[in-house]
Amino acid sequence: MLNYEAVKNYEFPEVTQSYTERDTILYALGIGFGDDPVHPGHLRHVVEGELRTVPSMATVLAKPDRWATDPRTGIDFVKLVHGEQEIVMHRPIPAAGTLRARSQIGAICDKGAGKGAVVEVSRELRDTDGVLYANVRQTVFLRGDGGYSQHGGTSDEPPAPLPAAPTAPPDLEVDLATLEQSALIYRLSGDLNPLHSNPETARKAGFPRPILHGLCTYGMAARAAMQVLCEYDGARIRRLAARFSSPVFPGETIRFRLWRHTDGTFQLDASVPERNTTVLSHGVIELA
């Protein structure tokens, strides 16, 4: 059972990560850049020289270890799923360098017995001089830990919910294909969970075959926004937030839909049309 005090006061070690242009290129290839190998917007993210980073790369840098497996937390790790992801960019991430971060726990919310619990985890990505590049926030949904507050734990106020997409037709729409090997490429950016590479692990988890990383789908949302909103200029992406609704299988095509608001913000969702399944929802995009 989730131990509120242990989770709330969890001491994350500082993580320092050095990365190269090769890592930056590999991340971009993992979310599908390069499928148009002559387009300058693609090439500047996958070829050395004037190399640029995709803003969503912030999600894979200086991230915490598998903290929820620590027995002191009491978390039923097997039933943990990624709920939401958000980045707020302060400046473009360098194509190569060293970044550091120390994660911290935010809200811990009990949704009730049998309904799970939600934990908010955030970190600031800074360089070795302390310059802030991005705020990274995720929520994890603990399917097996609902009702913990009935045994003496505290339930915090939940984070502000992300807005649902409008029911009106979208203003913009783009289809992006994944490759059969997309998960095998994306995993080289740091997420080696066998759910994304081992057929037997996937079957035990209830899937017919390995699934795509949720953060790969999220990265593709950043790519879609760059393509249709700012001519592949990732420096203009100020904020990207979304909720994970369902997994993607490598090889499927993802349809991203965007709605424009009068204040200049956008909402987003994503689906796999061939299965009529929403895979990202409650998306928000803000441009600089």
Results as ranks from 00 to 15, higher is better:
Ile254Met: 01
Ala241Gln: 02
Arg223Met: 09
Pro161Trp: 01
Pro194Trp: 09
Val248Lys: 14
Gln138His: 14
Glu120Ile: 08
Val46Lys: 03
Leu26Ile: 15
Glu286Val: 01
Met89Pro: 08
Ala160Asp: 08
Met226Pro: 07
Ala96Lys: 15
Ile105Trp: 06
Gly34Met: 09
Met226Gly: 15
Pro161Gly: 05
Val174Leu: 15
Met220Leu: 08
Gly30Ala: 10
Val136Asp: 05
Ser182Gly: 03
His90Trp: 06
Leu280Lys: 04
Gly147Ala: 03
Leu268Lys: 00
Leu80Glu: 00
Phe244Asn: 05
Arg275Ser: 14
Ser189Met: 01
Glu50Gln: 14
Leu229Ser: 05
Val81Asp: 00
Glu200Ala: 12
Leu188Asp: 03
Glu86Ile: 06
Thr139Ile: 05
Thr265Lys: 04
Thr265Trp: 01
Gly130Tyr: 07
Gly144Met: 04
Ala107Leu: 05
Pro194Ile: 14
Arg255Ser: 12
Leu172Phe: 08
Gln227Asp: 08
Glu286Ala: 12
Val272Met: 04
Asp76Ser: 09
Asp145Gly: 11
Asp70Ile: 07
Ala202Asn: 11
Ala270Thr: 10
Leu29His: 06
Tyr218Cys: 03
Gly152Arg: 09
Val131Asn: 12
Thr20Trp: 06
Cys109Ala: 13
Asp65Ser: 14
Arg239Thr: 15
Arg255Tyr: 04
Pro92Ser: 13
Pro158Glu: 00
